[in-house]
Design a protein around this nucleic acid. Structure first.
Ligand SMILES: [Zn+2]
Ligand SMILES: [Zn+2]
Ligand SMILES: [Zn+2]
Ligand SMILES: [Zn+2]
Lengths: 138, 138
DNA sequence: CCTTGTTTTGACAATGGTTGTCAATCTTTA
DNA sequence: TAAAGATTGACAACCATTGTCAAAACAAGG
């Protein structure tokens, strides 16, 4: 993810955005807007649900977080370590995530698109499975 | 798509399923349940919306159609020519679709998963862009 | 053809994630 | 401190999808 990120739109520093940032910072795995909102509530750092949605949306637009669409159709967000384009190996059960780079895949998608005359291309690629921990306890 | 398709569950032949099949058969591009339902309506072949959803769901479960989750979060279905696992190069604008096979990508995802001890893996990969036709007229 | 047991249908309600609304509130800048 | 503008949040609205369940359709025998 994090392809062609737009120039970061200037924004104001607010308590709410800092709160969302803070949770993202310390959350290792992908988390949905609803879940992030719940985390904030339990911590007493109350932020409106709509605000959580808007903040995550903006962060995603700016390429500051990666977005993953789960099979159930809900979006999950994550602040990744690496800034360059990469993909994710995600545990279907506990969401444990490994960031992976695949230069060969990038080249392949480009060549396939070119071969068929498609331009302005982007791609989505996610790998799902059971992490070692989850596989062991089942 | 079309990975590990389950044994096809036996079903009854009904007017409604035939109607959905017919539309899928003659539709070259990915189409959503709502759109397919609309097509049926305009043709006078009235089928309940819930039935369209159920029918497509079953076809997808049986691996008889491929499913694509658009960025707006809605599912689109397509009866593809090839039966083996493959991916799609889809026009962002008109939905024109090219089926592509990428053995190298398949191998890569498997090795990445193995390397990190993930098991029972699957992956999603779609390429989006502007097809030659749409690119030309813009 | 009937009959019977089972599957399927469809109108409608309900769900659930997400977005729109808009007055009140907060930031920033002057 | 004040004015201009961005942000917030409670709530309603949206919209794709699923659940409900009685009525209709199907398949297999008789
Ligand atoms: Zn990432
Ligand atoms: Zn796990
Ligand atoms: Zn396909
Ligand atoms: Zn096109």
């Amino acid at each position: 993810m994090s392809l062609q990120q737009q120039p970061v739109k200037e924004q104001r520093r607010t308590r709410q955005r800092a709160a969302v940032d803070e949770v993202l910072e310390e959350t290792e795995d992908f988390i949905s807007a609803q879940d992030l909102h719940a985390v904030l509530r339990t911590r007493g750092m109350s932020v409106g649900l709509a605000t959580v949605y808007r903040t995550l949306q903006t962060l995603a637009d700016n390429g500051q977080v990666d977005v993953l669409h789960t099979s159930s159709g809900e979006a999950a967000y994550r602040r990744c370590a690496r800034d360059e384009h990469h993909h994710h190996l995600v545990c279907r059960s506990c969401k444990a995530t490994v960031e992976v780079a695949g230069p060969a895949v990038e080249r392949w998608t480009k060549s396939v698109a070119k071969e068929h005359g498609y331009v302005d291309v982007a791609h989505t690629l996610e790998i799902f499975g059971l992490c070692p921990r989850c596989a062991a306890q089942q």
